[in-house]
Structure formats: C-alpha cells, structure tokens
Design a protein around this nucleic acid. Structure first.
Lengths: 370, 370
DNA sequence: TTGAAAGCGCTAACAG
DNA sequence: CTGTTAGCGCTTTCAA
C-alpha cells in the first residue's frame, strides 16, 4: 500500500493534509506539534503521515523558525584523542538535548578556522564551539560575538574576547610539575609543543596559544621561585609531524648540555618523543625523565608507566556543550562555573637525573617523593 | 561605514539588490553565480554585498536546490581512534571537494543508528556514510537506498544490501594471523570482541557484525586447515567497558585450560587486555602471546612492542568519502575498486607457549619465524 | 540580459 | 479549534 516505488518527489505537509482531508495548516500543526489541534484531526493527520511515510523537511522548518537545532564544532585535529574525547563529551550532551553536531577540522590553521566559522554561520547553526587555533587572531570570533550567535571557546582562551571559555587551567599544574622535576634534581627541563611559530622560542616571546603560554610561564615561574633561570633552548615549538619530533628529541638529548627531562605538550607529541628516546637507546627514567600532558590509557602500559598530567577533557567538552545550549535556550549562566582542574599523576617516568645522583644519592632510582 | 551595530535582521539578497539598484533576481544571480549577468551588474552587486557584509542563507539556498553540500557520517564510537582516523580521512576528502560533514555517534546501538540516519535524511544531507552497528538490522539502510539518496558503508559490510562498501577484509588476515600463532605452537587462542550478543559465543553462531564474523571464521578455518578444532569458550563477546574486559582477560588466563594467546579485536579492547595481563603479573610473550587489530602508535612503545594487524583506516575513510561524493555528483564508479588490505606486523608480543617449549625448544623465547 | 512573479516546504498571523 | 493568507531567503521559470 505504502510502496510508492519510483516516486521521486518527497511527501510534504500538503500531501498529508489532502490525505487527511484537513487544511495544510492543521496538518502542519499536528505534524509540527504546535498550535491547537483537535484530537480527531491529530489522529487522522498522523495516520495519513504514517501511511504516506511523511518526513518533515528540516531545512524548511529551520528556515522559518530560525533554529536548526545544530551546533557547530571547530577543532584543530580530530585525530588527536584529546579532541576526540572532548568531541565525545560535546556530542553526548548535544544528543541528550536534541542537538546535532557539525564538525569541522582546521589542522590548526587560522585561515581554515575563519572559513569553518563562516560556513557554520552560513548554515545557520544555533551556536558554535571553537577551539581557537590562535589566541591572537580572533577577528572572526569577535564577529561571531557581534552577530549575536552563541559562542563558546574550548580548550584555549582568547585574550580580550568576552566569551564563555572552557579550558583546563594548565598554568598551575605546569608550575607544580616543574617543581616536581626541580625537586628531583632536574635543571635542564625541556618542553616540546606543536605550536606553530615563525621563530624558535626565546625568552619573553609572545606565544599565540593560551595553553602553551600558560605552560611555559608556569615552568619559568617554578624555576624562578627556585632561584634559578630556565636554560635557553629547551622550549621547542613547531613540533609537527612524527619525524620532526624525533629530530627535536635527538637534538635535545645529545651533546654536553643535554636535557635531563622532557615534557611533551600532548599525547601525539609524547608518542614520538618516547620513540625518539628509545631510538637513542636511552632509558626512562634512568637516562631521561619524561612527563606528558593528557592521561591516555596507553600511558599505563609502557615500561615504566608514564607520569602524566591528567586533564578532564571529556568533562570539558560536556561543560562547553552545556554552556552553549544554555546560551542558545536563553537561560542564565549558573552562579558558579565549574572549574576544570588538571592533576599530576605520578607514575614511573620521572627519576633523578644522572648528574644529581652523585651528590644526592636516592635509595631507589625512581623518584616518588612528594 | 559598514557598522550596522545592533542590527538584528540578516542582510538578504533584497537588501543587496536595493543597494546595487538592480532587481532581486539579478542580485541573486550575481551572488549565487548562476544565470546570465552583465559585467556591470555583477560588479555593482558584489560591491554592494561586500559593503553590507552580505552572507547567503545556506538553508534557503539548500531548500531550493535540494543540495546541502553536506554529508552525514554515522559511526559507533568517535572516541575509538579507529573511527577517529577514518573520520579524519572522510573530513579531509570532504573538505577538498567542498562538502561539510555532520557527525553522529551511535554507541553501536542500532536504535540510535536508525534515529541518526533519519535525522540526517530529514536534514537533507546529500549523502550518507554509515558504519553499521549491525550487519543484520539494516531496514533503515535499505530505506535510504530506496529513497535514492547516496549511501556508502564504512568499516563493515551489510549482507544483502546493494551498497558500495569500504571495509578492510579481515578474513584473510585473521586466517594468516591464526596460522602464525598455530605455527608458534599455540592451541588455545582466544579472541576478544566488544560485539554485543545476547548469549556467549558458541560454534556456528550467527554474528551480527561482518567484521567479527569474518575474523572468527578466519580463525576457525586456520584451525581446521591445521587439522585441529578451535577449543570452545575462547571467543569472548560483549567486552564492553574496561572493567569487563579485564574480567574476561582474567577468566581467559586462569585455570588449567588457560589461553596461551589472546587476540584483541580493537585498540580499546587491547588496552584493557594488556592491563589485565599485567595485573595478573604475567609477561608478554613469556606467559601469554598477544595480538591486536589496528596499528596505533602506542603499540610500538610497550615492552615488548606489540604484534598488530595494521589496517588502512585513514585510506578507508578517504575511499568512502570519495565514492560517496562521486555518487552524489552522479559520476560513474571507477572500473577497479581499490582494495583495503590488512597486514600483519610482527613485533615482539608473540612467542612460543610455555607448554610447547618442552618438545619444541626455541633458541630464543621470542617467535619470529615466518 | 533583465525583471516580475511563482514557487521550495514549512511556520506564523489573523480571522472566523 | 480551523482555515486562509502571508511570508522565510533563495532559485527558477517566463516574458520582455
């Protein structure tokens, strides 16, 4: 009965209305679940719709209501589990609230991000969640604000932009972690990040990522408070593909001024740094200590298991989505914003540096003190 | 000049037309880049658009043209790097062709998948890429086909559905891997999968996933060709969360009939299985041999590095997206479909089983023969 | 080339 | 409650 075979044209409210012998308006009301419809009419319409296998055209609906029930998400790299998890947090919350998610990848290019935001706006998404590639180039985000469309920032802050932002505060944890390494006796502590920069890092340089700049600052401050100065050349940016990361690792670990500890700025970097260390035939933590951001499951499987900075990434995604949806629905912000705190998980990859052993011999090679 | 301040209403073609002193139709033609427009008009319109900061309403555009330049992607679990990578392949290709991607997660629930497909269709996506949670419950996919909307399957086949499918053929590689283990002397080879099933696995049971059923079949066939019968109780399904996987691992590895080798069906399972093994204080490959599907970077960092079945996941995503876009644009299928082949990467997690050592003492503990 | 006018499928006023 | 009549912003006839 309902097999329309090669019928090309979609069934519309008009068709349903005709079949149910009511006006288009009544059919639409019954179907769209708004306005006033008698029980009788509703039943006839719904039955007809069922019979005809009617499917509403959400585009037409959105055009009228102005709502698409879709939120746009812009991230740097979906392939990075950090964003994979955050995205999962977003989609889980979105689904629960009846929102759909359009995802766009930027490869951490601001140009791609500008384009992505534009496209999403053109598609009339109800709101945007953006993990800005740069904390500085934010004109396009400013414009989103001005357009009045809800916007929430994820993972990174953007200076001078008045937007709800959900980013783990890594300044404190960077400080804490660095102190931990300093107390273990490390002085040559390296930090490796993918952050793109025109020049190699030098002291006091402006970093375009709030995350990275927080981390570097935290590290420098820890040194300072320790009465020390962070040695030059140990903050390495532009750690892009696996090959370049391994190269950086080799450079960091060879020569008389080799680093005794390396901090990897994310899980993808970590993978290549550890590979690089292994390639050099060095052992962790015997020869080099190692610390990384993000607590992925695999970090517990290496020998030794890795000491990591755990970040509530999934929660961050959830919080961002919740906030955005709240904005979309015009509800007020809760009085107390949840805080997203990172945590240092001490496992086995941090030890006492070789040089320190002579004047500060530890009972065990592994460093586990406070 | 162009600061409209608190202007709420969006700029439309009508506004641009007025500003450019041409008809709405002409403005639309110039803006939409179709129809015939004189050089003069085009310039005036474009200038006016620029001046007013006009942005087309893609919804309205889509409603007329029927094309949304958007493809819908439905996967079981974005958090699983397997899909993360595949999704990356899809989005990369999509972007290059000017398509956008709407992503929906199903948690491997068919009900959620049915809903996801419906939503995407309602949103009038130009085409769909689905990684079906079940190879059996495919009515909704059948309906997509019937509706005439382009559809491509990813990662898993769906029996009896005439659809272009991009899935790595894991039957052969399963056979090969099992033979590899058999030749090393293993007889009690376990296979752990997340596949949801009402009952524990028993011989000849119908599996709802083409992937898993291929893998199990390949394994059984290898045993058969070896003149053996695969022992009962070693194919374990329903390996959901980390806890249940560790429990399964413990069960598999304890008692007189313990497995001597475990094959993990994906990277997420692998993580927990290896943890489970470590918790039992067993060593790989000394006490248990281990093999897993998917070659993630971390598998090279464990001690020993893990022997894996590498799958061209990114390529799979790319191929699926290319095929879908080709269908959408109405181009013919290429004569030769690319094949997606898995590859056994022998590293250090497969050895000779304890029992076999007595009558077949290997020179080294590690098994590396062909 | 151009412009007027008629839709796309739906929601939203406005009378009954 | 119900139906009629306008739109939403754009594309697409169809004449001019």
């Amino acid at each position: 009965m309902s097999s329309n075979g090669s019928r090309r044209r979609d069934i519309t409210v008009a068709d349903v209305a005709k079949a149910a012998q009511v006006s288009k308006a009544q059919a639409a009301r019954a179907l769209g679940n708004y306005g006033a419809v008698s029980q009788d009419v509703r039943e006839r319409v719904l039955a007809a719709a069922e019979e005809l296998d009617y499917r509403p055209n959400e585009l037409a609906r959105s055009m009228n209501t102005g709502k698409s029930h879709t939120i746009g998400v812009v991230v740097g790299d979906i392939e990075n589990p950090h964003f994979g998890l955050a995205t999962r947090g977003i989609t889980d919350v979105a689904k629960k609230s009846g929102f759909h998610v359009i995802l766009i990848n930027t490869d951490e290019e601001t140009a791609a991000e500008v384009e992505a935001v534009r496209v999403l706006l053109d598609k009339r998404v109800d709101g945007l969640i953006v993990a800005p590639a740069s904390s500085v180039e934010i004109r396009h985000l400013q414009q989103v604000r001005e357009s009045g469309r809800p916007l929430v920032l994820l993972d990174r802050k953007a200076g001078g932009l008045d937007v709800e932002t959900f980013a783990v505060d890594t300044g404190d944890i960077s400080y804490e972690s660095t102190r931990y390494l300093l107390e273990a006796g490390h002085r040559r502590i390296a930090f490796v990040s993918t952050l793109k920069a025109a020049q190699p890092y030098n002291d006091g340089m402006e970093l375009a990522s709030s995350q990275i700049s927080e981390r570097v600052d935290g590290m420098l401050k820890a040194f300072e408070d320790h009465g020390l100065r962070h040695p030059a050349g140990l903050v390495r940016l532009n750690a892009g593909d696996a090959e370049s990361i391994r190269k950086i690792t080799r450079e960091l670990l060879q020569g008389p001024d080799a680093a005794t500890a390396i901090i990897a700025s994310d899980g993808l970097i970590a993978l290549s740094v550890v590979e690089g260390i292994q390639e050099l035939g060095l052992s962790i933590p015997g020869d080099v200590s190692f610390l990384m951001y993000d607590d992925f499951a695999w970090t517990r499987l290496t020998t030794p298991p890795l000491t990591v900075i755990a970040q509530p990434v999934y929660e961050m995604g959830m919080a961002a989505a919740n906030a955005l949806i709240r904005q979309i629905e015009g509800r007020k912000a809760p009085t107390a914003a949840e805080t997203l705190k990172a945590r240092l998980v001490r496992r086995g990859s941090v030890g006492v540096p070789r040089a320190a052993e002579t004047y500060n011999p530890p009972s065990s090679h592994q460093f586990t003190a406070s």
